[in-house]
Amino acid sequence: MSPDALADLMSLEGVPSAYAAARDGVDVILRDRGLRRTSPETTVESLLRGAHASAVLEGSGSTLAQVRAGEGDEIAADAVRLSTELLALAPTLGRAPLQALARIHAVAGAGALDPERLGRPRDAESAVRLREVAAVLSAPTDAPALLVAALVHAELVTAAPFASHNGLVARAVERLLLVSRGVDEKSLIVPEAGHLALRAQYESNLRGYAEGGRAGAHAWVLYAAEAYTAAGEASPLRREAE
């Protein structure tokens, strides 16, 4: 993957309009639901919902109620722990993306892996893939932040560069990119829940992306635009407006 991949994806049929519509949908929710009046508790609730959804996608059997009560299984506990530290890493993701990726994995995998494996790529090939992701995160681009987040998400899931928790890491980075690039600075939409709501499509499109080729990448980014709309619908702001 190279930074040029973003320009290539934006040239594919339907992609520019899909991402313009997705961004408009997110902006409407954030603007019309009173973004400036939101409390830190709303962000905490969004992060909690996201942690639960990401954990379920990773194989957790815990319900949102169990996670809310601190009674989730080990995967859910890992996701919640990551959610509590995630937003503090937004500046690092922009300034030193490899460092941020390593830290995200170290937090997610704490307790599950030996300390020397935390934040470290599995092998030399994985190290190359992580550097490629970092290059995309560092390179100037005219591509929408949502598209960058979608591409990095798919790369991290399919490359599986760490010894564990790659799905949790990928979805955490996706959320963090939306914060750091100004799409959702208070982290109020729930991209993880958007993917969970569309789980069959999420998993099938990741498989298509992993197989390589232009068609698989095209299908993934079109799917992701739809998932960002679902992410907005999962925001706690929606409940507050009812």
Rank of each mutant, 00 (worst) to 15 (best):
Q66I: 01
Q201A: 14
E185A: 14
Q66C: 02
M1E: 00
R239N: 00
R120F: 08
L86R: 03
L137E: 13
E85L: 01
E203A: 11
L222S: 07
S187K: 00
D123A: 12
V67L: 03
E192Y: 01
G208F: 06
P91Y: 12
R199S: 10
L178Q: 03
D8I: 06
V133S: 03
Y228E: 08
G94N: 12
L206E: 08
R199D: 06
E116M: 13
L82Y: 01
E233N: 07
R129F: 11
E125I: 09
V67Q: 02
P16F: 07
D123G: 13
L30M: 07
H218L: 03
A55E: 04
R23H: 04
V107W: 10
V26R: 02
G70W: 03
A230K: 13
G109W: 03
G232M: 01
A172R: 09
R239S: 09
T141F: 02
A90Y: 10
L206F: 12
A79V: 07
E116W: 13
A110P: 07
R175T: 15
R103S: 06
A79P: 05
R175C: 08
Y202T: 15
G216W: 05
D32Y: 15
S187L: 03
L177M: 12
R37A: 12
A143C: 09
A230V: 03
L237K: 03
A193V: 09
H195V: 01
E85I: 00
T158V: 11
A227K: 03
A215I: 09
L146M: 02
G109I: 02
P140Y: 13
E155K: 08
T92H: 04
P140F: 14
P144H: 11
E74R: 10
A241M: 13
S138R: 07
A215R: 10
D114P: 08
R37K: 11
S204P: 05
A77G: 14
D184A: 12
A143I: 07
A22M: 00
A197Q: 10
V136Y: 00
A102V: 10
A102Y: 05
S180V: 14
D8E: 15
A88F: 06
V26T: 10
A134Q: 05
V190F: 11
L48T: 12
E45P: 03
G34N: 08
